[in-house]
């Protein structure tokens, strides 16, 4: 679903670049806060002749990286690498069309919604810069569709289903499926706003094909989560 350059007009591209930057900045801020904890540090004043009384020790706070915070960076890097690799593997769906994993729900379930978003955004940026996959002007749109809708939106769909059914894998499947369809709807809207094609028809076409691609997304997401549960259970802990 990577939009190339040329599909969107400048107005739509530039607004979405702005929107993407805003979401990236906000998520970076939030992620950063969560990586640190507040630790009290005793600051000692210079000792004076009369000796030290309690007033000489003043406490200030330092923010230091938590253990979870340090591991999280490795986790984000490796999940990003995996999503990139998995996105290369197009699987055939109906009618001579293929799809590939977008990975939003996968990344968000493992890392948390904002971390998942950031990872997807970096993957998209690198694909656009180094592999000509997805336009550089369309990068904002792609980050919004695949990152914001796919990862953050997908995460909350997962969260909703998981609360209701209490079944993680089923919820991840449904969330992955629905998030791909939603991303395709948003993508169709961007195309229509750019005057590329008329609304009804392109919306129907995008939903129809992504209905099937989404099933693939759901199945792959569940398979990978199952493999991780079995072989790498630690990475799925402290999900938030």
């Amino acid at each position: 679903m990577h939009i190339p350059d040329g599909f969107l007009n400048n107005k739509v591209s530039v607004s979405l670049i702005g929107a993407a930057i805003a979401v990236v900045v906000l998520s970076v801020k939030k992620i950063r806060q969560r990586l640190f904890e507040r630790v009290p540090v005793a600051k000692k004043k210079l000792a004076v002749a009369e000796g030290i009384d309690i007033n000489d020790v003043e406490v200030s706070f330092k923010y230091s990286l938590t253990k979870i915070g340090e591991n999280k960076i490795y986790k984000m890097a490796v999940i990003g690498a995996f999503v990139f690799a998995a996105q290369m593997v197009n699987f055939p769906v109906i009618g001579g069309t293929s799809g590939h994993l977008l990975g939003g729900v996968l990344a968000a379930v493992i890392l948390g919604p904002l971390e998942g978003f950031l990872v997807i955004a970096i993957v998209l940026a690198l694909q656009s810069l180094f592999f000509g996959d997805g336009g550089i002007m369309a990068l904002g749109a792609n980050i919004i569709n695949i990152g914001l809708v796919g990862a953050i939106g997908g995460y909350y769909i997962y969260y909703f289903f998981n609360k209701k059914f209490k079944k993680k894998l089923l919820s991840a499947f449904l969330a992955a499926w629905i998030s791909v369809i939603l991303a395709s709807v948003v993508c169709a809207m961007e195309l229509v706003l750019s005057g590329t094609y008329s609304f009804g028809e392109i919306l129907r076409a995008m939903i129809l094909i992504h209905f099937f691609i989404g099933i693939g997304e759901g199945l792959i997401t569940v398979c990978i989560l199952k493999l991780l549960l079995r072989y790498c259970p630690k990475i799925l802990k402290n999900e938030k």
């Binding site: 939009i3 690799a85 998995a86 593997v89 197009n90 069309t97 590939h100 392109i202």
Partner: peptide, 22 residues
Amino acid sequence: ALIVGGIVSLFASSFPDGLEKV
């Protein structure tokens, strides 16, 4: 990830993806 990117990717379908097809 390296196995998927380096080996499984060889079996990727060359059909156009959803958006390209549309």
